[in-house]
Amino acid sequence: MTTTSKESASDREILLVGPYGVLGTGVIDAVAANPAWRITTAARRPAPTYRTQTPPRHISVDLMDRDSTIKAFSNLDTVTDLVYAAYVEKPTMAETVAPNARMLTNTLEALAARNIPLKHIVLAGGAKSYGFSLGAFNAPAKETEPRLIAPIHYHQQEDIVAAWSSKNGATWTVLRPHLVMGPSLNSPMNLVTSLATYAAMSRELELPLRFPGRREGWNTLQETTDAELFGRATLWALDEDKARNEIFNVSNGDLYRWRQLWNELAVFYDLPVAEPLALSTVSEMSEKGPLWDSIVARYGLHATPYEQIANWHFVDWMLNFGEEVTLSTIKIRKAGFADCIDTHESFRRQLTKLRELRIIP
Rank of each mutant, 00 (worst) to 15 (best):
R244Q: 15
F73K: 08
L319W: 03
S8W: 10
P272N: 00
A124M: 15
H302S: 11
G126V: 05
L205T: 14
L104M: 10
E275Y: 04
C340L: 08
R349P: 01
E307Q: 14
E284A: 10
A110D: 09
L354D: 13
D254G: 09
Q308N: 14
E324D: 02
I28F: 00
K71C: 01
D270T: 09
K288Y: 13
T25Y: 08
V61G: 06
G18T: 08
Q222V: 10
Y198P: 11
D11E: 15
K128P: 03
P56T: 01
L195D: 03
S286M: 03
E145S: 14
M189P: 05
F73T: 04
D254L: 13
T225Y: 09
I295F: 08
S280F: 04
D11G: 09
N138P: 00
H178D: 04
T2R: 07
S346A: 13
V192Q: 03
P305R: 01
A196P: 08
M181K: 03
F347A: 07
K334V: 06
V27F: 09
G289Q: 12
H153K: 05
G126Q: 12
E246N: 11
G131M: 11
P46Q: 00
N34Q: 09
V17N: 08
V267S: 02
L134G: 10
P35M: 00
D65W: 10
G135W: 10
A110Q: 05
M103S: 10
W292G: 10
Q350G: 06
A30G: 06
I121R: 09
T80D: 00
A98K: 11
T171W: 02
T107D: 10
D67Y: 08
L271Q: 06
T69K: 01
E228C: 13
S328M: 04
I309L: 07
E204F: 15
D159K: 03
A94R: 00
F73W: 05
R232G: 10
Y50N: 01
K334W: 02
L271H: 04
F248Q: 12
D67L: 12
Y84G: 02
S129V: 09
V273R: 04
L148F: 12
T3C: 07
E206R: 07
R358Q: 14
Y87Q: 03
Y256K: 07
V61M: 01
R244E: 14
S280I: 01
G231R: 07
D241G: 12
C340V: 14
V250R: 04
E204T: 14
A9I: 05
G169T: 06
N249K: 14
T220V: 15
R355T: 13
L279Y: 07
G289P: 03
A42I: 01
M189E: 11
P35G: 00
S184N: 11
R298V: 06
R203G: 14
H302R: 02
A196W: 07
N311L: 08
E246K: 15
E89L: 12
S5W: 12
W312V: 04
G26T: 01
L195C: 06
A310W: 02
G21R: 12
W172M: 00
T40W: 04
L179I: 15
L261E: 02
H155S: 11
R12Q: 12
T304S: 10
G217C: 08
D81A: 09
